[in-house]
């Protein structure tokens, strides 16, 4: 226990001794995690916006005029049994005429002498099935039913949403991996410089009986501390920016950032992990 406490203190002292190199690494982790944190928040809110747009997505299934009431009921029962279906409702010919009047302000019977609007089902899918592949599979299965005349949905709308969702995901993932890589390399190089500048100390410690673990531990603690401090500063900065946006810039930007404690815990934990990985990488090359 005493040795662990001693090594922790040595890790702190190492951070102080590393001066500019240590401060530079903290700065890099700070900038990286601020960008990552903001990127996550923007990505999360964009995906939420895309998902709320997707929530408006529905499928209209038009029924043949000749279909019997019994067959329509069988088809409704089938829809009810489908795992992918969140909700659906039946629109009879009369309801369709009422809807037409509501939307266009004209009675269908005054435009035409008869009601050409077919009965239909309006179908909403569960969120995870609101994608092109699932929709095409479901509509293909449903079109096998003889009561179906036509199935319509906004295919281009879905394609466009999926395209943007994919681009956002690629950008965020690419930036995340690149920035993580840069941070780990920089932390690792700082620790390598620290080890190199203290090579005389290391060789002396070895001569007086220190084990490799005894020598390694302060460097690992130093790396974790660099990551932790950089991540804490990034958390503070993200909080500050969100506070500024939510409280003073609402008249300029109509966007509210929602922040939760787990976001900060993840950022600080992730920063410390980057520090740990960076220092282990450096130490493995030297000790």
């Amino acid at each position: 226990m005493i040795v662990i406490w001693f090594l922790i203190k040595e890790g702190f002292k190492g951070l102080v001794r590393s001066k500019f190199a240590g401060a530079f690494t903290i700065l890099i982790v700070w900038i990286t995690l601020t960008i990552l944190g903001l990127g996550y928040i923007i990505g999360r809110d964009t995906i939420n916006a895309v998902n709320s747009l997707k929530a408006q997505f529905d499928i209209n299934i038009f029924i043949r005029e000749s279909a019997s009431q019994e067959k329509i009921q069988d088809f409704a029962d089938h829809l009810k049994s489908l795992e992918e279906v969140d909700d659906f409702n039946f629109i009879s010919k009369e309801k369709a005429a009422q809807k037409f009047q509501k939307e266009f302000g004209k009675d269908i019977y005054s435009v035409l002498d008869y009601n050409p609007l077919p009965p239909s089902f309006n179908l909403q899918l569960k969120p995870i099935y609101r994608n092109l592949a699932s929709v095409e599979s479901i509509t293909s299965d449903l079109s096998e039913f003889s009561v179906i005349d036509e199935i319509k949905y906004k295919k281009n709308f879905l394609i466009m949403l999926e395209k943007y969702q994919r681009i956002i995901l690629y950008i965020i993932t690419g930036a995340f991996l690149l920035l993580c890589f840069i941070s780990i390399i920089l932390i690792s190089n700082t620790i390598k410089m620290a080890i190199f500048s203290r090579r005389k100390t290391i060789s002396t410690l070895k001569l007086i009986g220190a084990t490799n673990n005894f020598i390694r531990a302060p460097f690992i603690i130093e790396g974790v501390l660099q990551g932790f401090l950089g991540a804490s500063l990034a958390s503070g900065m993200i909080y500050g920016l969100a506070y500024l946006l939510n409280n003073h810039l609402q008249s300029v930007v109509q966007y509210t950032v929602n922040l939760y404690l787990p976001i900060f815990i993840v950022i600080v934990g992730f920063g410390s992990l980057m520090g740990l990985l960076g220092s282990i990488r450096a130490i493995r090359k030297f000790l």
Binding site: I2, V3, F6, L205, I208, G209, A210, T211, F214
Partner: peptide, 11 residues
């Protein structure tokens, strides 16, 4: 003191 820390002595 470092010699004794290495040998895990009490503070």
């Amino acid at each position: 003191a470092i010699s004794l820390y290495i040998s895990h002595h009490k503070t």
